[in-house]
Design a binder for these strands. Structure first.
Length: 205
DNA sequence: GGGACGATGTCCT
DNA sequence: GGACATCGTCCCC
């Protein structure tokens, strides 16, 4: 990251809860460029979010919330700004942030990829990869930031061990949408958003 | 109770 | 491009 940009960030302050109290898809798009901040024993790490997917509620067949609130996705029916973390394929953790308008019963955004901006060397202790690959894809992202199931239900607005803070979009960066990755239902919905051309995006649209 | 199946990543050919 | 690791959840028998 450029020093100029770093100077503009006076403090890593979590984004307020109201940011997430809007239509899931709208929040998803605006999450691009924001910072996912991780603090472990006074070590600071942050990635700039480059790829996300919106998952809605009872009307989205691809969503874990599709079958109702009595399953693993019950967090998605709760208050906004909290993390929904689940184990994928028995191997990888994936992290979502709950976001929905007051009209929506459920909704969350899967954070798929990020670009390391702070603490890359520390991240490598958890996942030793080059910068473009270390947080590319939902499983790699959680591995590089040492996020596991204990963060399911964690408040991402508290500003403690894990939170989201204001970031930036670089000049000329464009946001594009595409269909979501790895799903077998509702494959027509273009609810994946990414920063075009960024090397950390997991699968080019 | 049991089996199929993932919002994936890696390694092999 | 394909096999497979690996386990929680869900759905059906």
């Amino acid at each position: 990251m450029h020093l100029k940009t770093l100077r503009n960030i006076t403090k890593f302050k979590p984004i307020e809860r109201n940011f997430y109290l809007r239509e899931t898809i709208e929040v998803a798009e605006e999450l691009l460029g924001q910072l996912l901040v991780r603090v472990i024993d006074k070590n600071l790490m942050a990635v700039r979010i480059t790829e996300v997917e919106a998952y809605r509620g009872l009307l989205d067949p691809a969503s874990h919330a599709y079958r109702g609130k009595e399953g693993r996705a019950r967090i998605m029916f709760g208050d906004v700004g909290y993390a929904y973390v689940y184990l994928s394929y028995g191997v990888h953790y994936c992290i979502n942030v709950v976001a929905k308008s007051e009209d929506q019963e459920a909704g969350a955004i899967l954070i798929r990829s990020g670009e390391p901006v702070i603490g890359y060397q520390f991240m490598k202790l958890f996942h030793d990869r080059e910068k473009c690959k270390i947080s590319s894809g939902p499983g790699n992202l959680t591995k590089s930031l040492n996020i596991n199931a204990s963060y399911n239900g964690y408040d991402l607005t508290a500003g403690t061990e894990l939170y989201i803070s204001r970031g930036w979009l670089n000049k000329g960066e464009k946001i594009v949408s595409s269909t979501r990755v790895g799903i077998s239902r509702a494959t027509d919905k273009k609810w994946r958003f990414l920063i075009a051309g960024n090397c950390t995006v997991s699968k080019k649209p």
